[in-house]
Structure formats: C-alpha cells, structure tokens
Write a protein that binds this DNA or RNA. Structure first.
Lengths: 209, 209
DNA sequence: CGATTTCTCCCCCGAACGGGGTATGGCCAG
DNA sequence: CTGGCCATACCCCGTTCGGGGGAGAAATCG
C-alpha cells in the first residue's frame, strides 16, 4: 500500500484540535505528525516533524496564520498548507494564497470532505470551497479587463501604454509599432489626459497593476 | 420546484454537442436553450436565448473561445461561462479567466459531474478541475511575495520605489521622505542595478505588479 | 577592531519626458 | 456632407531622468 499522508494541525481551540488529530490519526492512509496550538510552536516543531500537508487555522493567538504560512514555507518549501477559517474571511484569503497557502476551507467542512481535500492537495490540487473559488476567479476578471480605467483609451493608446508598462522608452515603442516618435508621444499625452495622471509610470500602474 | 437552469453550449464537434445537449435537456432541473457550433453563431443567437450558464469549448473554428467569452460577457454580463477543454491548456486558462470565464473543466469530465458543476457555477461557485485550480493558486504565490525581484532591495530602496509606483516624481518623493533629491536618485540607481532594469516604470511594474 | 552595508549628499551631462501648440488624412454617424 | 474621433506627424521649451563620477556618517557584522 502507499504510505500514509503525513498531516499536521495548527489550531488554537484545544477541543477541535484534538478532535481533528484523532480523526486524522484514525483514518486509513493518514498520519497525524503534529498538533500545535499556536504559530510559534508550529514553526519550532513542524520542521522536525516533516509533515506533507498542514491544516492551519487562520486566526491564531500571537502570530497570525497568514504570517505563519510564510515562515513555514520558508523552511519547508515542499509543504502544502490548507487554511481553515470559521467564516469566509475575504480579506485574508488573498494574503494567505500569496504567502504560499494551497487551499482554503471552512472549519465546518465535514471531516470526510476534509480527508478528501488533504488527498487532493497532496496530489497537486487546490481544494477550496466554492465561495472562495469564486472570489479567486473574480480577482482575475478585474485584472485583465482593466475596468473603468482604460475604457476610454483607444486601441492604439492601450497598445502604446502596454509597451510603456513593459519598460520600453518612447523611441523603442515607435520602432516596435513602426510609427513616429512624435506619434507615440501624442498617444501618451492622450492617455495621461484620459487617466488623469501626469507620468508614464502612474498610467502604467493604473491600467496594468 | 425551482425553475430549470438555462444552459447553452458552444462546441464545434457535432457529435459531442448533440450528445451534451440531449443529456442536459433530459436532466431534471436543467434546460438546454442553445447549442452553437461556432463563436459567431453564439454571439448572434445567445443574447436572445438568455442562458444563465454557457459551456464553451476553448478551441473553436474562427474566433477562439477566449475571444468569444469576452464578447459574450459584454452583451450578457450576468452569464456564467464554463470553459471546456480537451487538454489542460495552461496557456489559455488565464486569458479565459481574465476575459470573464467562471470555471474551467476538462471535456472528459463525467456528465454527472458536469451537471453538478453547472449548479455550482449557478450558485456562485467556480468549478474547475484540481490541476487547473492549482495553477490558479500558484499564480498568486508569485504575485504577492515578489520572489527574487525585491529581495535584494533595502528598506529605503523599496520605500522609494513604492512611491515611484504611485506616480510621484523624484522631487515629490524627496519631500515626502524628507531627504534630498539626489538621495532619491541614488536609491533609484541602486534599484535599477539590482533589478536589472533601466527605467522607473519597468522597476515599478517588476516589483509592484 | 576593520570591513561591509546602508543611507545620505553633491556634480556633470546627455537623453528622455511632458505640456503647449498645429496639421493632415481616414472613417463613421448624424 | 459636415463635424467628431482617431491615428499620424511635427515644432518649441522647460523639466525630469538615468548614468557616470565622488564622498562622508552611521550601523552592522565578522
């Protein structure tokens, strides 16, 4: 048979932590190699315990779960972290993901689903509940479409600004587009006016953040 | 009972399209209100059909599925689009999501799972297979942490660059930080050298995209 | 302690930029 | 057909940038 998945917990609620630890330890194919009550303990003990998957509460006493993920990933780059949260805390979702979390589940997730999610993340997936998945996907919608900011920009203006955002100077942009330097400058002037900015950097950040 | 979910298909393979259309039409709680073979037909007929969810093949003759999503969302902002793809085409995933797609599934998804995914997207979820979910989550890992790029920057250098990214000119940054204009320039020179860029815009985009 | 890093300031100079004009040709809607 | 929008192009002029130097004070690290 395949070896058990090594799982660790970081959860300050003693009752829930022990409940989960027992459940995971008892499940075939899973091993519980750690159950910490706070971030400091996790950072001190988990590197030695070498878990493959960590379930981490997002609200912890002292250091937050988000901060803990970042530090833990620094020492165990291969570890997969699934955040657990009581409410779907939109604010911190993205911070956690940026810091290296691979999944995001609600605490009320049924234990059986939790085990499935652990397997999923171990197999390279990214388990998350549907509401959170939607938020993640929505964050893409805003990015590419450039909502209000560039709505007024013409095709050409946006094209020029895209090259500006890539760090090209006007002369290079002119050559790249096969137009005059002066024309590039003219398009940029129009961009500045429409976006209410005064510099190329501000324009680029506004449209292509 | 709740009304059926209005579903439309855009899929060039006739066999698969009709198979899916029949399956959806036959399923309780689902109605198939359109089945188009290409993007042009979809754009022409779907606004009138008013589907709530569209299953869209990513590879279509003529206009690509990605392009089609963008245009369709422009006319039907409320429609939820789930992309279907034969292989997990990493290249186009992000383009599709940026253009407004809400989900991303493989064609080999079992029909029963497909129905569940349609319900999920209708309820505000974002169905996607686990491999794609991982890619999406990974795209966040790179973003926030600013991996190699700004690791070498000193506190002050990053501070200056942050103001650059907000569109301030050196003179304003100097006043804001209470230091000399020359010092600001010096910090920026160091940034450029460390980031291997030549302009403030390129540096800003590299560190604060 | 000495070496290194960081932050601070200064000069010169050529290139790049931003704002102000003006103008021509194409295209589309009223 | 006329006015508006778009893309193209040019001029002047003052400001800003970026690269090249040099240099001192403080902090940090071996």
């Amino acid at each position: 048979m395949t070896p058990s998945i090594r799982v660790a917990l970081v959860e300050d609620n003693t009752r829930l932590r022990e409940q989960l630890a027992q459940f995971i330890a008892a499940a075939p194919g899973f091993a519980c190699v750690g159950a910490c009550a706070d971030a400091a303990t996790a950072l001190a003990t988990l590197p030695a315990a070498a878990p493959e998957v960590v379930l981490m509460d997002i609200r912890l006493p002292g250091m937050s779960g988000v901060e803990c993920v970042a530090r833990l990933k620094a020492r165990l780059p291969e570890v997969k972290v699934v955040m657990l949260t009581a409410y779907d805390d939109s604010e911190t979702i993205f911070q956690a993901l940026e810091n290296g979390a691979s999944g995001y589940l609600l605490k009320r997730t049924p234990p059986a689903d939790l085990l499935r999610s652990i397997q999923e993340v171990q197999n390279g997936g990214a388990p998350m509940n549907s509401h959170i998945a939607r938020l993640v996907v929505q964050s893409f919608h805003r990015r590419g479409s450039s909502p209000r900011s560039c709505e007024n920009l013409t095709t050409r203006e946006e094209e020029v600004l895209r090259l500006v955002a890539q760090g090209f100077i006007n002369k290079e942009i002119a050559e790249s587009l096969g137009i005059s330097l002066e024309t590039v400058r003219q398009h940029l002037k129009n961009c500045y006016a429409k976006l209410h900015v005064r510099t190329r950097t501000e324009a680029a950040m506004k449209v292509f953040r």
